[in-house]
């Protein structure tokens, strides 16, 4: 409840930022990217809430970006295209989720990594559709919403508010799930899958649902990104960064918490871009790596979900 209020308050403050910055395009772009990463980290956290640790969210981001770009270039309206990309990501994620039938824990994580690498490789090869290494350019810009002041919906400010809205939606979805039966099923399967199934809970449909929801949000971010940057390339949207960063950010911010992953994402990204980047231009990614290493070694409480889920022999 309290975190819900904090979220609303935070959203309100963030909504007032663009006018305060005088719509400075660079800072708006930086912040909207931070919000997209925060939404992806929240989506990653939603999946982790149900148990699986993913090393392959780039697959879903890329599916969303390519799905939306192709649909948009094919003549669909950008909004419809982003939605379609989201569905592609959800379907792809559910497909990856099928791996959970045979794989658990670290091996499921490796499986998601392999899927992401596979998709990236295929996107590079299948150039008739994806444009190969050069990617797809000329994606139309998002249309201006007629019923809102132009200054809020055009260009960088528009992207800013859309990314913020998407982040809000991702957090809202997670908050709803945590309070519902779905969240109870996710948490029970995460904590002790066998016990939960002995109580009549069938794991697979719930795991697939978690993958699909997480993939949906991640792919919507990908679709929005494609329409903001207006080009997609395999090495850009299937970049391993979209697999590594959400993991870093969510574990750093606190697994399974509502706001931790999003807050950590925004803080780490801004720290990295605004502080580390000017200081050590080539090395600024080191911050993420160090954050992840520190959290694994020194904050085992922040990794409560990681410490379980291993296989044990039960007497």
């Amino acid at each position: 409840m309290r975190s819900g209020l904090a979220a609303l308050l935070g959203m309100g403050v963030l909504a007032a930022v663009p006018p305060a910055l005088g719509f400075h395009p660079y800072y708006l772009f930086l912040l909207s990217t931070a919000f997209l990463l925060a939404a992806v980290a929240s989506a990653w956290n939603l999946l982790a809430y149900a148990g699986p640790i993913s090393f392959g969210h780039a697959a879903f981001f890329g599916l969303g970006a390519y799905g939306a770009a192709l649909a948009s270039l094919g003549g669909l309206s950008p909004w419809g295209a982003i939605a379609l990309g989201g569905l592609a990501g959800a379907a792809g994620a559910a497909g990856v989720g099928l791996l959970s039938i045979r794989l658990r824990g670290a091996y499921l994580a490796l499986g998601t990594l392999a899927c992401a690498e596979l998709l990236r490789g295929l996107a590079l090869i299948w150039s008739e559709v994806t444009g190969g290494g050069a990617g797809l350019a000329g994606i139309p810009a998002l249309p201006v919403l007629p019923w809102l002041p132009r200054v809020l919906t055009e260009g960088r400010a528009g992207a800013y508010y859309l990314a913020l809205a998407l982040l809000g939606a991702a957090l809202g979805l997670f908050a709803l799930i945590r309070r519902s039966r779905v969240g109870l099923a996710f948490a029970a399967l995460r904590e002790e899958e066998e016990r939960a199934s002995l109580l009549g809970l069938r794991p697979l449909p719930w795991t697939l649902l978690a993958f699909a929801l997480s993939g949906l949000v991640t792919a919507l971010c990908g679709g929005l990104y494609a329409h903001v940057v207006r080009v997609v390339e395999p090495d850009l949207v299937f970049s391993r960064h979209y697999s590594i960063l959400p993991l870093v950010m969510a574990t750093f911010g606190g697994l399974h918490t509502l706001l931790g992953p999003a807050a950590a994402a925004i803080a780490l990204y801004l720290l990295s871009e605004l502080v580390l980047h000017p200081l050590l231009p080539a090395l600024h990614q080191v911050g993420y790596a160090l954050a992840l290493i520190a959290v694994i070694l020194y904050l085992p409480g922040g990794l409560a979900g990681l410490r379980r889920g291993g296989r044990r022999a039960h007497p």
Binding site: R181, A188, E191, E192, R195, H256, G305, R308
Partner: peptide, 26 residues
């Protein structure tokens, strides 16, 4: 229904939620 010799709780859940799992999905 069964119990385990070495208890296998839903460690991260509250006591109430642990019981709610079965009540909800039975």
């Amino acid at each position: 229904g069964r119990t385990f010799q070495i208890p296998r709780p839903f460690a991260g859940l509250s006591v109430l939620d642990s019981v709610l799992v079965g009540v909800t999905f039975r």
